[in-house]
Simulated assay, not measured.
Amino acid sequence: MNILAPSILSADFTILGQQIKETEAAGAQYLHFDVMDGIFVPSISFGLPVLKSIRKASKQVYDVHLMIEEPIRYIEHFVESGADIITFHVEAASDSREVIDKIRSLGKKVGLAIKPKTPVEAVVPYLEHIDMLLVMTVEPGFGGQKYMDECTDKIKEARKLISDAGLSVDVEIDGGVTVDNVNVPLEAGANVIVAGSAVFNGDISENVKNLLGKMQ
């Protein structure tokens, strides 16, 4: 099943709850929550208080993407604040298996992310222990970037590795998706699509419905 995950990084925070409800009403199954620490990535975004406050805004799956150094430090806090899926970067953890086990022990789904320049091979040891692999299709840290075409082959490689291993692991992509190019990662093997500007710029309901229409 193909899933749309609107990224609130592109939302209007003066009316955030209202916009979240709008994405849910239009059919978006997930809500993507980008956490940036200013160290692993240059930007600082938002954290625990924001997640906790918006948890009641919808019944969507809250897909929390940690772009932070040593994520093990905050796993319990993000679970307590309402995360359903916690995704962390293989590049940011000194012991990825420890982080995976921590998330799993708290009853949540596990995602593992790689930057555009990180080879897919970096996640091979962990594939059987995760629920989702996030292939970044822009450099993490800023919204509104253009989709990096060279990442399409990485999506194909990731899907092949998962299929060859007989695993049931989602492939999520994040960065540069528009209604005009969403078919590219889907055809390459992705099934969870993060979209920020493509959802929140303009008519949210119409944008969600148009994206979902292209994702069928």
Rank of each mutant, 00 (worst) to 15 (best):
N191K: 06
V61Q: 04
K108T: 08
E121Q: 10
E76L: 09
V99E: 06
G27F: 03
I44H: 04
G47I: 08
V123S: 06
P42V: 08
K102Q: 08
V79I: 08
T87R: 04
G27H: 05
N201D: 10
I173T: 15
K56M: 12
F46R: 07
D34M: 07
V184A: 05
S163F: 02
G17H: 13
D170L: 05
V192E: 03
M36V: 12
I15S: 09
L161Q: 09
T23K: 03
A195M: 03
V135N: 14
D63Y: 02
V194H: 14
D63M: 05
L4W: 07
D34I: 01
E128V: 09
D84M: 07
G213E: 15
V169Q: 01
V182T: 00
P125K: 06
Q145S: 01
H65Q: 02
D174I: 11
T14R: 15
S205C: 11
I39V: 06
E187T: 08
I85A: 02
F13W: 14
S53L: 11
L212T: 14
S168Q: 14
N2L: 01
I155R: 00
L161E: 03
K102M: 04
N210S: 14
V120F: 01
D203R: 12
K52I: 09
H129F: 15
A158I: 03
V99Y: 05
A5G: 12
G143H: 05
A57T: 10
G47R: 11
A57I: 05
E22V: 07
G202S: 08
F13M: 12
Y126D: 08
S81E: 10
A57Q: 12
G38V: 01
R159L: 10
V177W: 11
V179F: 00
V208G: 02
E80Y: 11
N210Q: 15
I162C: 08
L127S: 14
R73A: 10
D63A: 02
I20C: 05
G27A: 02
T137V: 15
S10E: 13
R104Q: 06
K21G: 09
